[in-house]
């Protein structure tokens, strides 16, 4: 979706302000929020792309005015209520008022060391890769109202395939419950002037990781 989350190239957000000696968490609730998201994700009720879509659906004013973990917390509440895992009345009461639903599995402390590494998103190829390194491609000018990983600044742009990264779960379908639908993934490189116009600094190049359905041959 063409949401506020898709920030590449926007103006007006000001300088980057690194924090000196930044703590891992700025308050205990941030760590608990991260852990709650991990533990609920482990139960198998949603995929990583569904959770990203959950953040993207926050209203733009909420997105911009909430800290990172506040967005995670709001998203978690929303998704739990949407899936019928708990009611708003229970979250307001701070206690379960009804029994829980049976879920596939539950994260224990003993499982935690093995869940700190990321899962694999590679899947067997459904068809041969359409492109190879060195091929010229153009990204499609698409504007789906649902989750996509093709950023706005890189739509309808000409670039070159730099690497073929294997066949991966396709976020655009898995996020809307239409299956993993594995697709080839490529690193596509663009000249800065292709993205930002003739005034752009020619010593810059940008790349995105693009799924095959985002690309057409030139």
């Amino acid at each position: 979706m063409d949401g506020i989350h898709d920030m590449g190239g926007m103006h007006g957000f000001g300088k980057v302000e690194p924090e000196r000696d930044e703590p891992v968490f700025h308050a205990p609730w941030e760590g608990r929020t991260l852990a709650l998201n991990r533990a609920m994700g482990y139960t198998g009720i949603w995929t990583i792309d569904q959770t990203r879509a959950g953040i993207e659906r926050l209203p733009p004013d909420v997105y911009l005015s909430s800290s990172y973990y506040k967005k995670w917390e709001t998203r978690l509440e929303n998704m739990i209520v949407e899936l019928g895992l708990a009611g708003r009345d229970e979250l307001d009461a701070g206690h379960a008022l009804r029994p829980g639903k049976p879920l596939e599995r539950k994260l224990t402390a003993a499982d935690v060391p093995n869940t700190l590494s990321r899962g694999s998103f590679s899947r067997p190829a459904q068809a041969p890769a359409r492109f190879k390194a060195g091929d010229k491609v153009r990204t499609k000018n698409i504007h789906p109202a649902t989750h996509t990983r093709l950023p706005r600044y890189a739509r309808g742009k000409s670039g070159v395939i730099e690497a073929v990264r294997g066949c991966h779960v396709y976020p655009d379908t898995v996020a809307i419950g239409q299956g993993e639908n594995p697709q080839w993934l490529y690193t596509v490189v663009f000249e800065s002037r292709e993205l930002w116009g003739d005034a752009a600094d020619p010593s810059l190049k940008m790349s995105i990781e693009a799924f095959e359905p985002y690309l057409e041959a030139v």
Binding site: R32, L36, M40, A96, K106
Partner: peptide, 25 residues
């Protein structure tokens, strides 16, 4: 967050010791 954690634990979805282990890691 405490309310959310309590509800999810009482529903049997999460184990609070696992949350402690994640934060600690």
């Amino acid at each position: 967050v405490r309310a959310l954690e309590t509800v999810l634990a009482e529903k049997g979805y999460i184990d609070q010791a696992a949350l402690d282990a994640i934060v600690e890691a």
